Each structure stands twice: as structure tokens, then as C-alpha cells.
Computed example of a mutant assay.
Amino acid sequence: MPPQTSPAERALEHMSNAVLLMGADSCVRYINGAAQVMFAVSARQVTGYRLPSHTTPCVRVLEAAARNAIETGEPFTNRELSLEVSPDRRMTVDLTVTPVSHDEVLLEVSELDRRLRITREQNLINQNHATRHLLRGLAHEVKNPLGGLRGAAQLLHRELDAPDLQEYTQIIIEEADRLRTLVNGLLGPSKHVEKQETNIHEVLERVRGLVVAEAPEGVTIHRDYDPSIPTLLAEPNQLIQATLNIARNALQSLDGHGTITLRTRTQRQFTIADVPHRLVVRVDIIDTGPGIPKELQDRIFYPMVTGRAEGTGLGLSIAQTLIHQHGGLIECWSEPGHTEFTLWLPLEADDDNEG
């Protein structure tokens, strides 16, 4: 018969904040579900023991906070504390420590990044919807007169005998074709997503092969894959296109020298655009380039926004649209020497999103 839980324990289990009861010996007396997810441990694994070493240096921070509260007997809160919960994951939290007896303290960890991320991702989704509707209307208005302009230039080209005059009409035709390509890019992908069982690593290996073929000798492509990730329902060509757009941007930012890393991980109980998912795949595309200018970071997913003179500013906008069609999202974090694009994709079956 399973052990009976108290009303207080049941309430703690339903909290979104991580809660631990820690003794003066730094051993865990109680850990709720949110804390188990945050620190990637199970209650059976840590109850009666110290938190495992893979959460170091986060462990040292929590244990020092617990000792301080026991010694002083006073509760305290550390605001906007940076915790490294794993070698590849750092989060910003509010840490509240409350003594409950002479040798026990209650630690409550409230993840600020999650709230900020939900607000930021909703802004990205709203941004994506608004720009797509605006640009599709504008692009349709441009396509019709552009087609007429090209057709008239072709007719004129056939009527002219002088090569120097034909050169001018050829310029008109070529520029009309260039603008048509640009307009089609603004319209973005409109094909309905036909999903199938897709291995994310096959997608990334295809992208890696294309980038390696384009990369100069001074650029290295690293892989850091989690082989346990299951297949997901997706349209593989669209995932390839979205990932390739980001990887090519990374390659161009390196200017012939540096490293690109392709990394995969899973995340449990993750919310995208207010939709909770039991399991999502996280794909990180990391480069060691100069970083994205601060003034562009909030606008990089807008069409026509680019930091390169020769760029169209469409690659990231299209990538965001393609991933959004899969119920996912792309986020970006950048500083000099480290730019990281993260693709979040649900791993469970899901209804198709708007195209």
C-alpha cells in the first residue's frame, strides 16, 4: 500500500516552483515534482542523500544558503540568482530559504527565466503572425504588376535588334526575376505540413553535410547529439530548410574561422505558446562568431532585418514560420563569441498549426 501523503505535501506537489526540505547535514528530506524536473533527479534517488554531483556548482549554492539560514535562524531571499543546474543549462531564479526547525530549512526556487521566456515567445509568435499577414498582402499586390512588367520587357526584347538595347531589356527581365524571388520569399511557405516519422539527427546530418561542403578549412562543425531522442512527427524537408537557414547564417558570421556546434537534448514538461507538452526536443545551433548586434537582437525574426549588406533578411523569418507550423518555436541568445539559436519541437503527436 503506497504511503499516505499529507495535505501539505499534496499542495507542494502541485506547485510550479521547486521546493526542497534540506537538513543541516545537507541531505534532502523532501523534494517536490517541480524540483525533481529542475534538477533532473527523482525523489527516490535523493531523499536521505545530498543532491548528486552532476548539479554542481548549483549544489554548493543551495547548501551554502541552507547552512546560512540554519546558523542565523532567519529567512532570506536572493533575487535574480544565476544557477548552473547542469553543464549546458543555466537559469535565473529567486531563491527563498526559510528555517522550519533548528536543523531543517525549506528552499523554494522560482524560475524567472520561464516567465520571461513565456512572455518573449508569445511576442515572437505575435510578431510572426503580424508580419506574415502584412507581407503576404503586400507581396500579392506587387506580384501582379511585376509579372506584367516582365512580360512587357520580354516582348520588347524580341522586337529589338540592337544588342545594346537588348542588354537594357535583359536587365529589366533579370531584375524582375530577382524581385519575384524576393516576393516569393516574403510570401513564405504556404504548403500544408505533411508530417511523417522523422529522426531529428537525420535532419541535422543532412544540414551538416551541406554546411561542411560550403565551409572553408578554418571552420569546424561539431556534433553533440543525444541518441536517445525518439522520432517526431514532422515534414523533414521543412525542418532541413529551417535548420539550414540558421546554420548558413552561423557559417557566414564566422568569416572563415571558428566553430559551429549542433546539439540535441530533450526537455520534459515544457510549454510552447501556452500549450504544455510532455516532451520536446531542443536543437541548439551554436557559433563562435562576433555575435548579433544588440540593436538587432529583438528584431532578427522580422523579414528584411539583416546584419549583412548582402543578406535579404528572410532566412530567419522563414525558419521561424516553418518551425511554428510544427507547433514549435525558435529562440536566440547572443553575445560576442557565442550565438545560440534554439529550436523547440514537440515530440508527441499534435494537430497541425496554421500554415
Rank of each mutant, 00 (worst) to 15 (best):
T5D: 07
E9I: 15
V19M: 04
G23L: 02
C27A: 14
I31G: 01
I31A: 03
N32W: 02
G33P: 01
A34P: 02
V37D: 00
V41T: 09
R44E: 06
H54C: 07
A69H: 09
T72F: 07
E74G: 11
E74S: 09
F76M: 08
R89K: 10
V93K: 05
T96P: 00
H102V: 12
D103N: 13
D103K: 07
E104T: 15
L107P: 00
L107K: 05
S110D: 10
E111T: 11
D113A: 11
I118C: 00
H129Q: 04
A130E: 14
A130K: 13
R132Q: 07
L134D: 08
E141K: 12
G148F: 14
L155F: 11
A162I: 09
D164K: 12
L165C: 07
I171A: 14
I172T: 11
D177G: 07
L179S: 10
L187G: 05
E194K: 10
K195I: 12
E197Y: 14
N199D: 13
N199M: 02
E202I: 01
E205W: 02
V207Q: 01
V207P: 02
L210G: 07
L210K: 09
E214F: 00
T220F: 14
Y225H: 03
D226C: 12
I229S: 03
A234L: 08
Q238C: 12
Q238N: 12
A242T: 03
T243V: 03
N245T: 08
N249V: 02
T264M: 00
T266N: 02
R268N: 04
R268C: 02
F270P: 00
P276Y: 02
I286D: 01
G291R: 14
P293M: 14
K294R: 13
E295T: 06
I300R: 00
T306F: 06
G313E: 03
L314S: 11
H338E: 11
H338C: 06
H338R: 15
T339M: 13
E340K: 15
P346R: 15
L347E: 01
D351K: 12
D352W: 10
